[in-house]
Write a protein that binds this DNA or RNA. Sequence first.
DNA 1: TTGTACGCGTTATCAG
DNA 2: CTGATAACGCGTACAA
Lengths: 343, 343
Amino acid sequence: MATLREVAELAGVSVATASRVLNGSAHPVSSDVRDSVQTAAKTLGYTPSAAAQALKQQRSKIIGVIASDILDPYFAELARGIEIEAAKSGYVTILANANRDPEQERTKFRVLREHQASGIVFCGSDIEGAPGTAELARDVNMAVRAGTRVVALAPRGFDSTKIIIDNVEASYELTRYMLSLGHRRVTFIGGVPGLTAVEQRADGYRRAMFEAQLVPHVVGRTGMRQESGRNAIAGIVAEGSLPEAIVCANDEIAVGVLAYLWTSGYRTPEDVSVAGIGGTRGGAVFGLTTMTLPLVELGGLAARYIASASAQPSVPEPPRFELSIGSTTAKATSGQARSQQFG
Amino acid sequence: MATLREVAELAGVSVATASRVLNGSAHPVSSDVRDSVQTAAKTLGYTPSAAAQALKQQRSKIIGVIASDILDPYFAELARGIEIEAAKSGYVTILANANRDPEQERTKFRVLREHQASGIVFCGSDIEGAPGTAELARDVNMAVRAGTRVVALAPRGFDSTKIIIDNVEASYELTRYMLSLGHRRVTFIGGVPGLTAVEQRADGYRRAMFEAQLVPHVVGRTGMRQESGRNAIAGIVAEGSLPEAIVCANDEIAVGVLAYLWTSGYRTPEDVSVAGIGGTRGGAVFGLTTMTLPLVELGGLAARYIASASAQPSVPEPPRFELSIGSTTAKATSGQARSQQFG
DNA sequence: TTGTACGCGTTATCAG
DNA sequence: CTGATAACGCGTACAA
């Protein structure tokens, strides 16, 4: 690793001059000196030390990303959005998985701070009553007061900047769409008990159902993954009563539902309409109807906020979700209406 | 951000002593002094500066990860494996997407080096003849000679440490399995022309076909994503000739194939057997037959290699793949054999 | 067992 | 326009 001093020596100038040339400082440098420094840097393969720069400037061009599960496309898309936008400003993202565990989040948060991250993004929401939540909140609040930029992209019980898509509304509108198709027996599948963002989606679903004077059914709250959806629908089928329509807590769950239905001989949307929430890449190939949340864009907003040069960057509005109508939902048929059992 | 000196002052000791207490040095410190330093650190919320540590020790606890596409579960699993193992040794992973573009890889590689990463992992393979490949190789080779640990988890044309699963063999064995089921018209779907790892998989497929005295058919080389599989199989169906079995370049493609088949009224494995390569989480819910590559483990090996304390860590053997038989493959039926058209 | 002092690579201030 | 020099926060010889 060639250092600035080596470059300076080779170019026959001082380190100060070399620094001015190599970091795009506004300070004026004559063009011939500039050239000799640059050639020297090139021949030596000079790479500036981000560590030294961070030490000097009390701030490193690092954005920390705390995700629940990078294997979940929801978080992968957020991470990608953050990374793309961060790179545009010369920032780099440190990715940390925390498995929705406040203790792990606390550890990762600390490590990220040790690396002088300019900002830290929490991608997922918290789980009500999870042990360690209060301590995490304390740490975060302390960091925020100390000037670290912290952004939450989902509901969180600490005092960070928040850029949050309205989960209640997204789910409400999706459910309304299902009802507008004529379905009455609409079931909500999936989630993790206490996981705030998903509870909000369940709430939006319930509101739409109540308004239509229907009884909500929320089942299969065993996780956010494809298997959860598969297991939940398998249970429903085992009980003998397929609903007319299913709203899933996220796209992964919806794909799991589709997988079960298709491998079991059911058809969508003929036998049952299925929709997800998220709009992640995984649902597209199945023609999944979903409430698309602009996740890449959302991540980008967080990154831009953190990378912003201004001392008090304005908090961006969360992007608006949008209904993507696919081929897994259709109008209720008379046959479905006839076999109504609950609701 | 409280500094070591502030802690030392509060505890009434020298920075040297504080340092020795707070970084787990072997140097002896009396227990009462130790206590006072620790309480001082706690009350001040002391966080060591990774930047200063990195600067001092000429090495930061960072592992750089260069992936092609974090939305592809293949890379997401590798990234997760790296991250889990890295965290165990107090390392942190910087994730960089490079879209299989050598120019971008070069940029990311440089940035990672600026951050004094102890090591850098290339997750994907290279594309033959892609512009910038030679320059990337030059940079990497230079870095390797300068002592940076570079690991490639797929075939690469530079002099890094390599931990690579045998793609030819994995694909060969999978194809052999398909043949053992009695299928003769076996098609290989997907890939990116020149993408080394996938060319190897195609080669393994071809070898198995040749040995069985069958004519190989490689089609749909338009990408590694679900849509690629969907489009490829759609094209095949449009031509009117469904093969008996399909080997896909990866699991994503296989899922795309399944999606098309199921939404078009075909059944697996009754109408056609489908298998993937990778063993990523996405295929599991569909009961996809696949050659499972232990990706999380593979990533972990790379991380352990980089985090290893020894000066010359031994290069680990790549983990062995394993056939996972699901419900998307079955023995050939007489009906399929009768309608044989090519091969 | 504890403290002093230097330097890691950079940037910024101040002289020239 | 250029150069010398003082930090930034930490680890570690070396001295006590």
